[in-house]
Design a protein around this nucleic acid. Structure first.
Lengths: 109, 109
DNA sequence: CCGCATCCTGGGAGATACTG
DNA sequence: CAGTATCTCCCAGGATGCGG
């Protein structure tokens, strides 16, 4: 189980709540890349640098449990699974947009 | 040394850059609370749940090295040290604001 | 009060092999 | 293809004591 700040924070504040949902580099990257159209497990693995299948799986499960993404299995051969942002997931995009804007502005090579 | 996604990411993207600077729950919390007026080391330690001195020290150093906060030492007895956001630090506030807004809207007790 | 030096531990993450 | 199951490793972070 993931240890969360919530567990021992007396003055629970919104920022901490958000951090507990997405304050994890992997999760933000997953959301970011799903938004960009990388919907399949393999696609995500290719585009996110150095994620192991294991970790990617875990993060996808957590995001699903938090209602941020949907998982759709297509009964095909070979099997196909697609992930999509839920409404809640979409509501996170402004945060990622702000981060993206900041990165663009202040990034130095 | 902190292992950064940057080190092994072929397609370097702004979101990842931002993540490398602040994609760490402690750092965001530090920025958040400095903004709220908790400028002293002790104040930060009191207000951030369960940070050890060590960790807080490290994060403050990293933030300082990244030009996000300033450190001012007052030659008093007892000693006093204050941290302030630099211009670069202030430029991060929109991100935190978005996170705060999101938390307020979707937080369930 | 602030914070460095040490030591130590837990659990996040990688590697690998195996299934439907 | 898209996972699960295991095992291992590593280091971020906690605890503690000292020093300016």
């Amino acid at each position: 189980m993931e240890r969360k700040l919530k567990d021992y924070n007396p003055e629970y504040c919104p920022v901490i709540y958000s951090l507990n949902k997405i304050g994890d580099r992997w999760k933000l990257l997953v959301i970011h890349y799903i938004r960009k159209g990388n919907l399949r497990f393999g696609a995500l693995q290719n585009v996110i640098p150095n994620v192991s299948r294991q970790t990617l799986t875990n993060k996808l499960r957590e995001l699903e449990a938090d209602g941020i993404i949907n998982r759709t299995v297509y009964a095909e051969v070979p099997p196909r699974v697609e992930y999509n942002l839920t409404e809640l997931g979409v509501s996170l995009l402004p945060i990622i947009n702000e981060m993206s804007k900041w990165g663009l502005k202040y990034m130095r090579p």
